[in-house]
Nucleic acid binder design. Structure first.
Length: 502
RNA sequence: UCCCCGAUAGCUCAAUAGGUAGAGCGAGCGGCUGUUAACCGCUAGGUCGUAGGUUCGAGCCCUACUCGGGGAGCCA
């Protein structure tokens, strides 16, 4: 592929040279005889300086009147300029407008999420969204690189399937020539059969969950990567998972530092993400949740929230009571923006204050045997600065295929990996039950029909081996790394419960 | 499914005690040679989500509905 256009990404190799950029007008400011055009070309942003006299007069006039997102080419000399976005800028000598854009709906000011999702096809052009897309790309590439470099074979598992991974999960039904089938929620069962062929395998694709989950951590369609390994025990699997996640983090840190900075991600926290991660058993977690330490932790947290609320309210009152008549317009503007920001932070803090006692109660009353709830995971996660493995969950709370711990028949050899600082679960995995009779009995106990799992049971009939694997949610990983409050920003076109915008 | 909050200009938000609907951005025109969500001046832009009710009078109060946001359960 060749192009006559230079990319903004490669400007550092082009200082002093005359080049042509092709892109879109991201933003522009004009000041009489000088114009500042911020151009984006898909590889970055570049400020282009148009001075009257340096370009033909009619070009100068045309550029003054083109709207945001007009497409154009600009030609000029590149120089380093620390004041400029990206560190370089172009002294424009010529330009060509390709297509004029008028009334672009997404302005440089703030917008509501509903509006942005309705305009998702355009919102993707915004810088922060672009940063997330770039990081998502790196995450996916790092995922593939890790497995490909470590002897794994890619196995594509079916999207339309007749077998369910979890028990009575809500699945999307598909009319398959008259037979009701459903969209896959995991490739795991098929993957296990491939692991018995290739040893180490992984699948990577979209997965579908019809759960009625309306939270910032859920999508109905999301991407998941699932490795599956033959001849592995739980400690080996945890090691694989921590090396895997660490390699993703370090790739993003080295390839997308600028994007992380633009997004306001916590880079220092990410730099700490190296093996080994914390290892807790489910029982440890129950003890932590019901301990005085946790009680105090939550009480302190509530105090912090209340203090935060007070500070925000004070600041709001301060801004509101200012004599606006005397202020300059730009100051009013800034205050208005701050007020909007403060009000939304306040609303969030109030929700946290409201939730805190409920979470404290849930944690304190936690009984061994129940699955860990979202708030419980958040508490554990908040107490740690690195990802946490939670292992050995009660058998009754978990899926039929998880291997019973032979040393403690009440628990299974599984794990969840919680991302730190309150983010919560990004991986779920387990060692799989490899004993034929035990697996049949688990299937029966959970009210499932063994005849639906015949081929799956075959894997335990013909050369069964200890094996296991896990699933990592791509969007959750991206949301964690980029410090996004909501997962819906981490997939180009999100599908949420009852809501598909475009 | 349940709980909380919201809907006012293209967008983000105001409207004090129920009394003539307001600002910024964006759009259009003009001014300004270093701007960083630039700035300054002017212009256009509204059936206050829908339906009903209370009232001399409703953006504001009441009822229902629609749509949206957040949270719970469940999960990656």
């Amino acid at each position: 592929m060749s192009s006559n256009y230079t990319t903004i990404k490669s400007l550092s190799e082009n200082t002093g040279k005359q080049v042509t950029l092709a892109g879109w007008l991201y933003n522009s400011r004009a000041s009489g005889k000088i114009q500042f055009l911020i151009i984006r070309d898909g590889t970055g942003l570049c400020q282009c300086i148009v001075e009257k006299g340096n370009v033909p007069d009619e070009i100068f006039e045309q550029l003054k009147h083109i709207g945001q997102e007009s497409s154009l080419t600009v030609t000029g000399t590149i120089r380093a300029e620390p004041r400029s976005v990206g560190g370089y800028e172009m002294a424009v000598t010529d330009a060509k407008i390709i297509s004029v854009s008028e009334g672009y709906p997404i302005t440089p000011k703030s917008h509501g999420i509903d509006f942005l999702l309705k305009n998702r096809h355009l919102h993707l052009r915004s810088h922060l969204q672009w940063c997330i897309l770039k990081i998502r790309h790196t995450v996916i590439d790092a995922v593939r690189r890790f497995f490909n470099d470590n002897g794994f074979t890619l196995i594509d598992t079916p999207i339309i399937t007749s077998i369910a991974g979890e028990e009575e999960q809500s699945l999307f039904e598909v009319d398959y020539f008259g037979t009701p089938l459903h969209l896959t929620q995991t490739g795991q069962l098929h993957l296990e059969s491939a692991a018995m062929s290739c040893g180490k395998v992984y699948c990577f694709g979209p997965t579908f969950r019809a759960e009625k989950s309306k939270t910032r951590r859920h999508l109905t369609e999301f991407w998941m990567v699932e490795p599956e390994v033959a001849f592995i025990e739980l400690p080996g699997l945890l090691e694989l998972a921590e090396n895997f996640v660490s390699s993703i983090v370090s790739r993003v840190l080295s390839d997308n530092r600028a994007e992380l900075e633009a997004l306001g991600a916590n880079i220092e926290a990410l730099e700490k993400i190296t093996p080994p991660f914390y290892r807790l058993t489910y029982t440890d977690c129950v003890n932590i949740l019901t301990s005085d330490k946790t009680k105090d932790f939550l009480v302190n947290q509530l105090q912090e929230f209340l203090e935060e609320k007070k500070q925000i309210e004070t600041r709001i009152t301060e801004l509101e009571s200012q004599d606006t008549g005397k202020l300059k317009q730009w100051q009013k503007d800034k205050n208005a923006a701050e007020l909007i920001e403060l009000r939304s932070t306040l609303a969030e803090t109030e929700i946290k204050i409201e939730n805190n006692p409920r979470h404290a109660q849930l944690a304190a009353a936690f009984k061994w045997g129940k699955d860990l709830g979202g708030s419980d995971e958040t508490i554990i996660s908040l107490m740690h600065d690195k990802p946490i493995f939670v292992t050995h969950y009660p058998k009754q709370a978990k899926a039929f295929y998880m291997k019973t711990d032979r040393e403690n028949e009440d628990v299974v050899l599984n794990f969840d990996m919680l991302a730190p600082a309150g983010f919560g679960e990004i991986i779920g995995g387990s060692i799989r039950e490899d004993d034929y009779d035990r697996l049949v009995s688990r299937i029966n106990k959970q009210g499932l029909k063994p005849e639906n799992y015949e081929w799956y049971l075959d894997l335990r009939k013909y050369g069964s081996v200890p094996h296991g694997g896990f699933g990592l949610g791509i969007e959750r990983t991206v949301a964690w790394l980029t410090d996004q409050k909501h997962i819906r920003q981490c997939i180009p076109f999100p599908r949420m419960m009852d809501k598909v915008y475009i």
